[in-house]
């Protein structure tokens, strides 16, 4: 029996708990036992991206303590938090004789959710069905930071239901970028406008992505504009089983 630890991420924990439960349901349906180590907070990415690296280091160390030093794979339903744990935390802590090696070991057993399902479990058909017309936005950190490109597409392709709607300029950033959306709000907003125009042009009724931060940003823009398009994390789509 495969066992994993779920890194739920602070945003899913606080704002979108249903995405966490969809992730658990999906993994359990695939025969995976999911542990959720208690006392999870934040991986430190907001501080890292904003240049407060000392703060980011403290949060990364906390995360390492929470996930321990066993060899149980860690699964994270977010490309950007995944990138933080897999690439950035080892870089941040490289001069820390105690936490540096632990950060590297944690990075080596951490997987973004779709990476884990497709590459580790070897599954692309998870038995999902969706009545929605889906379009997919490949969020930047997963796509270019982790190189997770084909996995989400392979999973989406096997979801039963109406054909997918191709998203124009899919790989262009939605403008989120953490505090970037506040610091350069107008530029970010301009990118968001373009992303939303492309989403509406796709003809989809639901936008899917693998990062709730981007989804929060895009959903905020869609709601402001009064758009009928919904957003869903890919785990939510995949968790909708065919028998249900």
């Amino acid at each position: 029996m495969t066992r994993v630890k779920l890194l739920v991420t602070c945003l899913i924990d606080t704002v979108y708990p249903q995405v966490g439960f969809s992730t658990v349901a999906l993994l359990e349906r695939l025969g995976v036992t999911v542990d959720v180590p208690p006392n999870q907070t934040c991986c430190g990415q907001p501080a890292f991206n904003s240049g407060s690296w000392d703060d980011a280091r403290a949060m990364a160390r906390h995360l390492i303590d929470v996930f321990g030093d066993d060899d149980v794979p860690v699964v994270v339903p977010s490309g950007s938090c995944g990138d933080m744990v897999i690439h950035q935390a080892p870089h941040l802590l490289k001069d820390d004789s105690q936490y540096g090696p632990r950060a590297a070991a944690l990075a080596a057993r951490t997987y973004e959710l779709t990476q884990f399902i497709v590459d580790v479990l070897g599954v692309t058909d998870v038995g999902a069905r969706s009545g929605d017309r889906l379009t997919y936005h490949p969020a930047c950190h997963g796509l270019r930071g982790l190189g997770v490109a084909r996995q989400p597409l392979a999973l989406l392709e096997r979801v039963e239901g109406p054909p997918r709607c191709p998203l124009p300029e899919a790989e262009t950033c939605c403008g989120f970028g953490g505090l970037f959306a506040v610091k350069l709000s107008e530029v970010s907003g301009s990118l968001l406008d373009r992303k939303i125009a492309n989403i509406e042009a796709s003809g989809a009724d639901t936008l899917v992505a693998t990062d709730v931060s981007c989804l929060m940003h895009i959903a905020g823009g869609l709601h402001r504009k009064g758009s009928a398009v919904k957003v869903k994390h890919l785990a939510e789509v995949l968790a909708e089983g065919r028998s249900q």
Binding site: I12, P17, A181, V182, S185, S188, M216, G220, R224
Partner: peptide, 21 residues
């Protein structure tokens, strides 16, 4: 500056970790 261009979601009444417990 965020809410000039986009709405912001209310957080969930209970966190995932609370519900998981």
């Amino acid at each position: 500056r965020w809410s000039k261009k986009r709405d912001f979601p209310a957080f969930a009444p209970k966190t995932f970790q609370q519900l998981w417990e």
